[in-house]
Design a protein around this nucleic acid. Structure first.
Length: 478
RNA sequence: CGGGGUGUGGCGCAGUCGGCGAGCGCGCUGCGUUUGGGACGCAGAGGUCGUCGGUUCAAGUCCGACCACCCCGACCA
């Protein structure tokens, strides 16, 4: 460790890989495309998970667990689903030394097996809605992988719900999109755009897909969460039916929604700088690190005593705090280490501070003198708690500013091509796949989504000039 | 799967025209001095040079095949 991180301006993807590894979030596994999530990265994921799980419970969902293996025939029951996922399936053909009667797919997502179970659990309108979430790992045989952003195996949650009407399913789909947006903005300090996916970008088997899209530090887009209205597609494929009040058999309307460990990559790329990670206080595994400045032998005892007292005061008040009392590293070394690992606040306590009953506090999000302040020891837990809230707010504010500065509204196709190479382009779009294809061909950008919030009125498609009733976000994406 | 690149102690690398004790920096272990922005000294430990085959008196070095990983594309959360 303690190697230099490649500057973002020099090579953004090297910077990303350097940060992930040096901050000890994750490491490469012996199997291509797979990663080991290390304790620090996993702690971050656990905090993400807790914040999401709380929201799922608040909106009436329950957790359950479905099997890793799915019969091959299940995947083939929904036409678009097969086409979408076949190329990236891992398939088990042998077990116990024998070839299996029917190959088992390692789940790439669980609509099929959950649909199968729902068909058995639902008979009456009284059984609806079913609102289940599962925390699981899934496998997709990706050709090109990146730590957290795209690995062959990843961790996520997938919600699967069944409803009596289209309206309820649509309401659920949008409710969960709101949950994701709320999480991203208020926990991860990541501003996102909620919108509908285009026909070509939607989930395999969905009636309509929605996403939240965020802008990374290199101005490319990242889909941070998705929510799908599956219509009756899976209900028909898996025979999920219920008797309504009139004793008539009806197909259910289902939804699914997911957010993955990709969110970790999102947080890294939205907030990080050339020193390394900058973690939002609400999700940071360690919110405050205390670094003692030893001083003379005579002073050492008092300094460590003060450090421990501060640690306890913060900890007792629910702040995630670590006292770094390792004496084999110098304070300067520790400063760099904890900056690399993105700890939002650092408290330094040295001989002068003990004498003055104060501490030095340094903000990770404001490097250098600007982020340093002297705070009195008295009532420190409250000032620190307030400061953490402030850091969280400022990080969101900065991310919003960055995104807005790099979001453009080009008026013609030539300027569109220019801006979309280096930012988000908001532009009228006629909805034709041909126009999307042309944009992709010529700029590598794709439609990210069609924002739910529209300016109103109408315009002309930025590509073909045909009448358009909606604007779309175009960007190069991860 | 196409293009590019790299495989030498844990990590990053050097190793010339093939030439004979396989090196450097970081890290690691021990002892001592240090500590307000990545400390220093001394003494140590650690290597089938990715794998297989070939050429040669002699291969980390040349040739061939294979494997693995990284980066860039097409596919995707």
């Amino acid at each position: 460790m303690a190697e230099k991180i490649t500057p973002r301006s020099q090579d953004y993807s090297r910077w990303y890989t350097d940060v992930v590894q040096q901050a000890q979030l994750a490491d490469y596994a012996p199997v291509r495309g797979c990663m080991v999530i290390r304790p620090y990265g996993y702690a971050l994921w656990e905090n993400i998970r807790a914040a999401l799980d709380r929201r799922f419970k608040e909106t009436g969902h329950e957790n359950a667990y479905f099997p890793l293996f799915i019969p091959m025939s299940f995947i083939q029951k929904e036409k678009e689903h097969v086409e979408g996922f076949s190329p990236e399936l891992a398939v088990v053909t042998h077990g116990g030394g024998k070839e299996l009667e029917e190959p088992l797919v390692v789940r790439p997502t669980s609509e099929t097996i959950i649909g199968h179970m729902y068909a058995q659990w639902i008979q009456s309108y009284r059984d609806l809605p079913i609102l289940i979430n599962q925390w699981a790992n899934v496998v997709r045989w990706e050709l090109r992988t990146r730590l957290f952003l795209r690995t062959m195996e990843f961790l996520w949650q997938e919600g699967h719900t069944a409803h009596a009407t289209y309206e309820e399913a649509q309401e659920e789909t949008l409710r969960m999109l709101d949950v994701y947006a709320d999480f991203a903005i208020n926990e991860a300090a990541v501003p996102v755009i909620k919108g509908r996916k285009s026909e070509s970008e939607k989930f395999a088997g969905a009636e309509a897909s929605y996403s939240i899209e965020a802008m990374m530090g290199d101005k490319r887009a990242l889909q941070a969460g998705t929510s799908h209205n599956l219509g009756q597609n899976f209900a028909k494929a898996f025979n999920i039916r219920y008797l309504d009040r009139n004793n008539e058999l009806q197909y259910c309307w289902t939804s699914s929604w997911g957010m993955s460990t990709r969110m970790v990559g999102c947080i890294i790329m939205v907030h990080g700088d050339d020193q390394g990670l900058i973690l939002p206080p609400r999700l940071a595994p360690i919110q405050v690190v205390i670094v003692p400045i030893p001083g003379s032998d005579a002073e050492r005892g008092a300094i460590l005593g003060a450090c421990e007292a501060v640690r306890k005061a913060l900890s007792d008040n629910g702040i995630r705090v670590k006292l770094d009392d390792r004496d084999e590293y110098s304070p300067g070394w520790k400063f760099n280490e904890w900056e690399l690992r993105g700890v939002p606040l650092r408290i330094e306590i040295g001989p002068r501070d003990v004498a003055r009953e104060q501490v030095v506090v340094a903000r990770r999000d404001k490097p250098g003198r600007e982020g340093k302040s002297f705070l009195p020891m008295a009532g420190l837990h409250q000032t620190v708690a307030d400061l953490l809230v402030q850091v969280q707010q400022d990080m969101l504010k900065r991310a919003i500013e960055f995104r807005d500065e790099n979001t453009f509204e080009p008026q013609d196709y030539e300027s569109f091509k220019e801006v979309v190479a280096n930012g988000f382009a908001r532009a009228w779009w006629c909805g034709a796949t041909a126009c999307e294809d042309r944009v992709k061909e010529e700029t590598k950008a794709t439609t990210r989504n069609i924002p739910l919030e529209q300016p109103g009125g109408s315009g002309r498609c930025i590509v073909c000039g045909a009448p358009a009733s909606e604007i779309a976000i175009f960007a190069r994406a991860y």
